[in-house]
Design a binder for these strands. Structure first.
Lengths: 140, 140
DNA sequence: AGAAATTTGTCCGTATGTATC
DNA sequence: AGATACATACGGACAAATTTC
């Protein structure tokens, strides 16, 4: 049965579980995770669901998977998980003179700013800010 | 049958197909894609495979999916994927408060700013500014 | 070197839950 | 309320890469 998911899909709960294991140190850096087939038994989920959970952690850079070998925890996760969350931010900012000119809007008009922070070992390497015109959602 | 994939997984070929349709304009910006169930028929793949393909395009920001509604092409693309001819500029700028905090430098200290302007037909779609610490010759 | 076992990758079909029209 | 569409989940099958014996 597809379970009554929603509110918290199974694969997300599993991802959270595994993420805790990694960040808590229960799974040391570079450690090999149990095989997907083992996780299906341990976590009582189908392999597809397990793989969905692993895909999340892979996206977050917490794990690395190699075909035929297995899945490891990323050997260098110096940055906390919270950092990853703060990596990107999206907000409305007033256009400065140059942006206003480029977008052909008035100075001070709202622009969507997306900021991404790239760190290495906790050190900020680069900050990227992209600006776009806000989407105007029209009603029906 | 799991088909003889590999060399080019099915979901990737499908993603490429759909990406072409979008970038070529066959699927205009904001257009509603056929339902996943329709794509299974048209592209002869299971829904899971179709969804894998859509996940790629979603990741690329080419499409937007809404539960119960459908999947659209992103109303404002073109700023990202292709589109060469981007104007770039590089200069030193004083760090604002946030940048100073992120780079652990003082407010007003110099940062290298690289600005790229993405246009489509003369219209500015996106402005990207990246900030880095200036390179300084230091000892080892 | 080679065969077998292990592990991840891909794909299918089906069923059910939830959101939207 | 019904139809449509996306989301989640299961189980099975085979392909490909890696490791082990």
């Amino acid at each position: 049965m597809p379970d009554s998911h929603y509110g918290q899909p199974r694969y997300r709960a599993i991802a959270n579980d595994l993420r805790r294991r990694i960040l808590s140190g229960a799974l040391p850096q570079g450690a090999l995770l149990p095989a997907e087939s083992s996780l299906t038994v341990e976590l009582r989920a189908s392999r597809g669901t397990i793989r969905q959970a692993l895909a999340i952690l892979r996206e977050e850079g917490l794990i690395i998977t190699e075909h035929g070998r297995g899945t490891y925890t990323n050997p260098n996760i110096s940055g906390r998980d919270q950092l990853a969350k703060l990596e990107t931010r999206r907000r409305l900012v007033p256009a400065d003179q140059e942006l206003a000119s480029l977008f052909a809007i008035e100075v001070g008009a709202a622009l969507v700013e997306q900021q991404r922070i790239m760190r290495t070992g906790g050190v900020t390497e680069e900050v990227v800010r992209s600006y776009q015109l806000p989407l105007v959602a029209d009603d029906t």
